[in-house]
Design a protein around this nucleic acid. Structure first.
Length: 435
RNA sequence: GCGGCUGUAGUUCAGAGGCAGAACGCCUGACUGUGGCUCAGGAUGUCGUGGGUUCGAUCCCCACCAGCCGCCCCA
């Protein structure tokens, strides 16, 4: 019988790597809390229409990368429904915002999420079919200040802080404004028109993009095309006065706060709902998947989903890519991830001592120590070998120790061996640990 | 979805149309209640899966699966 494997583009995360994942998530939660973001957890699958209406019918994500299936009716009273594994989480958050009338509080809603997303792409390093995103959204009625450029700047400043606290070195913040949806549509036509004469001189990919999706021409990496792209109209020139002013205020706030960024007038994003401020944090060393996170403002999204006016700004960061970046950094620094050793390894000398050993382990564990429990069938030598690999100390529990109530404790890092009365063991471990 | 490279022990990797290899790790002993160092021994395995060519295929051919690189796209 064929053995079963994790399906293409999915993978198991195992210790000790999961320790790094947990550390990243804990850091994110800590930072978000300082900015008054609270956690939201939305379902992993949603009505397919949610993504079609938010991300955009014509985007690659919706048109060819979603895991969609027909959820059959199981009774007369039910009706069939098209469901989709979420390819991103902003749509779900905004849907929840509308459904629970969060805007009625009048307060700005600051929500973050951590969870798996699904896209049926060709897997590569840093690109998986089930991947993890950490994201946040600041959304609310205009009267809550949700539209303020301050919100954009605050989110960007928070991200810079988060990446710094995660220990990610050498990130770059790229920033742009794509204007209102009207501005964006206007620019799309300006660009399409300009490309009519320019595109024939460009690479084949660009010739195709010029027709199907002009904005994507700006992403072209072919060296020969670069001068031609620079000669094309810039989106900044198509922005309305309001969008220009908004963007200038975002930039001014970042300057004041000392957050470094570069303006990239060619930064356009793939999801239809983005308006005005858009951004990406990138990092070299991730190969073709160099975006650590991306995001932007989505001022019309709530209305597009049938909700009230609720401008917002948010981002999603690729947790898998953060892990890769941090792991690569560790290798460069030759600093092996310091495996936190257990406080003690308890070694019963004989199977008749197993029960007593479990009791001792229970006491220590309840006192807050990290303890591994050996087996009495092990020879002492094997217990030492096993203990030395994972614990700072071995606690020997033989007949002598059981009778006398005096345990033998050997500290591997110091090479010292001590007799400790059982009642004082916890205190002994605590003291020694603090030194 | 397209193009290219790769797939051999738990891990990292050699290998050659004719007995399946190394290092590290693992197990046993030297050492009966003392690890690390050393020494002596031992087990690693559907050679990614399925077909084909051949006296014989892990090696050559085809298909499939998976990973990686690029495109595409995005986090």
């Amino acid at each position: 019988m064929a053995t079963l494997k994790a399906v293409r583009g999915t993978r198991d995360l195992l210790p000790p790597e999961t320790e790094l994942w947990n550390r990243i998530e804990a850091t994110a939660r800590r930072v978000f809390a300082r900015y008054n973001f609270g956690e939201i957890r939305t379902p992993i699958f949603e009505d397919t229409a949610l993504f079609a209406r938010s991300v955009g019918e014509e985007t690659d994500i919706v048109s060819k990368e979603m895991y969609t299936w027909e959820d059959r009716a199981r009774a007369q009273s039910e009706k069939a429904q098209s469901l989709t594994l979420r390819p991103e989480n902003t749509a779900g958050v905004v849907r929840a915002y509308i459904e629970h009338k969060l805007g009625e509080s009048g307060q700005l809603q600051k929500l973050y999420y951590i969870g798996p997303q699904f896209r049926r792409e060709r897997p590569q390093k840093g690109r998986y079919r089930q991947f993890w995103q950490i994201g946040a959204e600041a959304i609310g009625p205009p009267s809550s200040g949700s539209e303020s450029p301050l919100r954009d700047a605050e989110v960007l400043e928070m991200l810079a802080t988060l990446l710094d606290e995660l220990g990610i070195k050498g990130w770059t913040l790229e920033l742009n404004s794509v204007g209102s949806s009207a501005d964006r549509a206007r620019y799309n036509e300006v660009l399409r028109t300009a490309l009519v004469s320019v595109a024939p001189k460009m690479c084949v990919d660009c010739q195709r993009r010029a027709v199907t999706n002009p904005l994507r021409v700006l992403d072209c990496k072919v060296p020969e095309d670069q001068p031609l792209i620079e000669s094309l109209p810039k989106i900044g020139d198509s922005l309305g006065a309001e969008a220009k002013e908004h963007f200038a205020a975002v930039v001014a706030a970042l300057d004041s706060a000392g957050v470094p960024y570069i303006l990239n007038h060619r930064l356009v994003r793939g999801l239809d709902y983005y308006t005005r401020t858009t951004f990406e944090f990138t990092h070299g060393g991730l190969g073709a998947q160099n975006a650590l996170l991306g995001g932007g403002r989505y001022d019309g999204l709530s209305e597009a989903l049938g909700g009230p006016r609720a401008p917002g700004i948010g981002f999603a960061m690729g947790l898998d890519r953060l892990v890769l970046t941090l792991q690569a950094g560790d290798l460069n620094q030759e600093s092996a991830p310091p495996q936190v050793a257990l406080d003690a390894y308890i070694a019963p000398l004989g199977e008749n001592l197993n029960a007593a050993a479990l009791t001792l382990a229970r006491e220590l564990r309840r006192a807050g120590f990290n303890v591994e429990l050996g087996d009495g069938s092990f020879r002492l030598k094997k217990s030492f070998e096993a203990a030395d690999k994972i614990a700072r100390r071995i606690v020997i529990l033989g007949e002598d120790e059981l009778q006398s109530g005096i345990l033998t404790v050997k500290d591997f890092t110091r090479g010292t061996q001590t007799k400790v009365p059982r009642a004082e063991l916890a205190a002994f471990l605590a003291t020694a640990a603090g030194e």
